[in-house]
Structure formats: structure tokens, C-alpha cells
């Protein structure tokens, strides 16, 4: 029984050791700015097309689904607020994070994993660089800057998608839709809409790096790490999403919703 638990417990412990070392490396020089910029480009700019697509179509689908329900109550004017709230609180952060997790947790894990199995990580250490500082830190910072930005963009194109449906199928005017959407959003919504992707960015980058750096067993091992990184990152995003949502619900109920 204890033996079954030993593996996962050790992994979690190692994961937090890596997190600790990464936090320590944040303030320490050198900062490797070119690597940071390169990672921001890969993670941010590289994920933009798919984030745009997903954001737009989730807005469209949401407006379509809502419109049917709302029409039965004669409340189609509520399309804007409902799309806005659902997108900003949940759909935007979670969908964007999952898309980026699929893309970048995998990308990070396979890149660092192949570096590990070809001894490039050891070579780095032998040649004067700390892999945490040189590889993990830029990826962590880049993801945690880019993911909230991508989320805001996804929210926006989602709203545009919702507007297309509202305008062309429900005959709402631009001001009806956009005013409704704008007025529905409270600081609480915006805050959780930004804090969530920030937290998920930490998960995506750290899980990707963790599985990448502990890869063993050649090319086969790289495939295994990549799969694990994506699965674990996505599971953690869902679990943490429940917790963070609960915290904001609680804040709103207490009237501490910053509104």
C-alpha cells in the first residue's frame, strides 16, 4: 500500500522542489532576456491563431445556445450580458488555458525531454548554466505574461462571435449587445478572468518543464513525458478552476467582490 503511494508522493515533492528552485531563480541573474523573448513569441504569438479560432467559435456557440433558451422567455436582449459573463469568468480562461496547455505543455515537455535524453541538460550544467535559470524561468515568465493576454483576446473575439449571432440571427443592435455586455461585467468577473489564466500559466509551464526535465529512456521516454505533461496540466487546470471559482463566488457573496 505504502509502495503504491511512494511514487506519486515523491513526484509531487520533486515538483515542488523544482518550483522552489524556479522561484529562487526569478530574482537571480543572469536573466537570459533573448530566451524570454523567444519563448513569448513561441507561446504567445504562436498560440494566437488557434486561440482566436477557439475564442470566436465559443462565443458563437454560446450565443446560439443561449438565444434559444432566451427566446422562450422573450429575453433575447440578455444575450450580451450572458455571453460576456460566461466568457470572461469561465470559457475564456479555461478554453484558452486548455488550448495553450495542449500546445505548450507538450511543446515544453518534448523540447526539454529531448534535451534531457541527449544529455544537453547535463552539457548545460557542465558548461556553466543552470537549466532552471536558462530553461524553466523564461518559459514560466513567458507563459504567465502571455496567457492572460491571450485570454483577453479570446474573450474579445468570443464577444465578437456572440455579436455576429445576436445581430444577424436575433436582430439585436450593436449598442444593445455591447452595452449589455459591458454593464454586466463586474470587477469580480474581470479579476477572476485574469487571475485564472495567470494561475493556469504557472501550471502549464511548471508541469511541462517538470516532466521534460525528468524524462528518461530515450525517444520513447520523450513521448511519454509529453503525454503526461498535457494530461496532468489539463487535469490541474480543471481542479484549480473549481477552487478559484469557489473563492470568487464566496467573495461575491460576502460582498467583497470588489464591485
Amino acid at each position: 500500500m505504502l509502495d503504491i503511494l511512494k511514487g506519486p508522493v515523491l513526484s509531487i515533492q520533486e515538483f515542488f522542489v523544482l518550483c522552489g528552485r524556479t522561484i529562487k531563480s526569478l530574482g537571480r541573474r543572469p536573466h537570459y532576456f533573448p530566451d524570454l523573448v523567444a519563448q513569448m513569441d513561441i507561446i504567445g504569438v504562436g498560440s494566437l491563431p488557434i486561440v482566436l479560432l477557439c475564442g470566436f467559435f465559443s462565443g458563437v456557440v454560446m450565443a446560439l445556445q443561449m438565444s434559444r433558451a432566451l427566446r422562450t422567455y422573450g429575453a433575447v436582449t440578455q444575450t450580451g450580458p450572458i455571453v460576456a459573463i460566461t466568457l470572461v469568468r469561465e470559457m475564456g480562461p479555461v478554453l484558452t488555458s486548455i488550448v495553450v496547455a495542449g500546445r505548450n505543455s507538450a511543446g515544453i515537455a518534448s523540447e526539454l525531454g529531448s534535451m534531457k535524453v541527449t544529455e544537453q541538460i547535463d552539457a548545460m550544467r557542465a558548461l556553466g548554466t543552470d537549466p532552471v535559470q536558462k530553461l524553466v524561468k523564461p518559459r514560466l515568465i513567458a507563459t504567465s505574461i502571455m496567457l492572460p493576454c491571450l485570454t483577453v483576446i479570446a474573450d474579445f473575439v468570443g464577444l465578437v462571435g456572440g455579436f455576429m449571432i445576436a445581430h444577424f440571427m436575433l436582430s439585436l443592435t450593436g449598442s444593445e449587445y455591447w452595452n449589455g455586455a459591458y454593464r454586466a461585467l463586474e470587477y469580480n468577473d474581470v479579476a477572476q478572468g485574469l487571475i485564472k489564466p495567470f494561475v493556469y500559466a504557472l501550471v502549464i509551464a511548471m508541469v511541462g518543464c517538470f516532466y521534460g526535465l525528468r524524462t528518461t529512456g530515450g525517444t520513447q521516454g520523450v513521448g511519454l513525458s509529453t503525454t503526461k505533461a498535457v494530461v496532468i496540466a489539463i487535469v490541474w487546470i480543471f481542479v484549480l478552476n473549481a477552487f478559484i471559482t469557489q473563492i470568487f463566488v464566496w467573495l461575491a457573496e460576502k460582498g467583497l467582490g470588489l464591485s
Binding site: 541527449t118 544529455e119 552539457a123
Partner: peptide, 13 residues
């Protein structure tokens, strides 16, 4: 102060 050649070269690709 040490130089090391790794088994497969371990060049950064």
C-alpha cells in the same frame, strides 16, 4: 576548469 565531451556530443541543436 573542466572540459567534457558527452557520449553523443550533446551539442545544443
Amino acid at each position: 576548469r573542466v572540459g567534457m565531451l558527452f557520449q553523443e556530443g550533446a551539442l545544443f541543436d
